[in-house]
């Protein structure tokens, strides 16, 4: 019993790191631009399909595919920003949300048309298998994915704190007018933020493809999971994001282990609602 629980916790924490990486994308977009990208989960789904296409065409391993999907998603993010997001910045927020909801439907629909709505998976990745720590089984693929996620989260933190572009993003987040006066071109900063946030899903997509399949509806689930992580973490705290990712991952994994795997979203939803009611700014939020 305890052993099963610990086993579930280990799997959950490792999965949680990927959720944290996905949530980091919406966190910087929401935090810097105050724009809600409802389609973020579908960006993940889209990257997974892209990984599948590239992985089968080039006979690459899933873990390698982000080398190509990252730049593709970066460009895709730029296009989406200039075509859609940039025009909704001054609109009522319902309209803004509606535009990204449209984007979400569009991406899911494209996946339905192109891949007929069938789930797709790649060949077994070379990081499959498992190893043992203190008598507990750890899946190598999850472990590698978690480590890579953490590396990228750290890289983004470095970028935000130590580079000029990162400083511009944080300045635009704190006070847009003051930042503009200091010579920050906010259109360009926003475009970069949105592209970076979208491109992070490419990493997550490649890692997820190494051990699971993708289907068009998966985007809704990833979107909800990552918003839940963000609600738990609050804005502006990267350690908080990692902790929140772990909490959500563990909740999901324990629900699957001890109750019904079909209701895997129930535990996450319960956390989401409780956090919204009791701690609307998240457990670790800065603002």
């Amino acid at each position: 019993m305890t052993e099963t629980a610990i086993q579930g916790i280990i799997t959950g924490v490792l999965m949680g790191m990927i959720y944290a990486l996905i949530a980091l994308g919406i966190s910087i977009i929401f935090g810097v631009m105050n724009v809600v990208n409802f389609a973020h989960g579908d960006f993940v789904m889209f990257s997974m399909y892209l990984s599948y296409v590239l992985g089968t065409a080039l006979v690459w391993d899933a873990v390698q595919t982000p080398l190509l999907t990252f730049p593709i998603l970066l460009i895709f993010g730029l296009i989406v920003y200039y075509l859609i997001i940039d025009r909704t910045l001054r609109q009522l927020y319902v309209v803004q949300l509606a535009a990204t909801v449209g984007l979400q439907i569009m991406m899911r629909a494209a996946a339905l048309v192109i891949w007929r709505g069938q789930p797709r998976a790649l060949q077994y990745s070379f990081i499959q298998g498992n190893f043992e720590i203190f008598g507990f089984q750890v899946l190598t693929s999850r472990f590698v994915a978690a480590v890579i996620s953490l590396i990228f989260i750290a890289a983004v933190a470095y970028f935000m704190n130590k580079t000029w572009a990162g400083a511009a993003m944080r300045a635009a987040s704190d006070d847009l007018d003051a930042a503009t006066l200091m010579g920050v071109n906010y259109h360009r900063t926003y475009a970069l933020t949105f592209a970076l946030g979208s491109a992070l899903t490419a990493i997550a997509g490649g890692l997820l493809m190494s051990f699971q399949q993708t289907d068009p509806v998966g985007g809704i689930r990833f979107g909800f999971l990552s918003w839940c992580v963000l609600a738990l973490a609050g804005l502006g705290s990267i350690p908080g994001l990692i902790a929140a990712g772990a909490i959500v991952g563990v909740a999901e994994s324990l629900q699957v282990t001890f109750f019904n795997p079909q209701g895997r979203l129930l535990a996450v939803y319960a956390i989401f609602i409780l956090v919204l009611w009791l701690k609307p700014r998240g457990l670790f939020g800065r603002k």
Binding site: R87, T88, Q96, A99, L103, I105, M106, R108, A109, Q118
Partner: peptide, 27 residues
């Protein structure tokens, strides 16, 4: 012409396009 769930996707696509266009140009 579109077996399986492809057709569902096709009209969802048109819906989404209309929604985006309305949100951007005719809020």
């Amino acid at each position: 012409m579109f077996p399986g769930k492809g057709l569902e996707g096709l009209y969802l696509m048109v819906y989404a396009l209309i929604l985006i266009v309305v949100a951007l140009f005719q809020p």
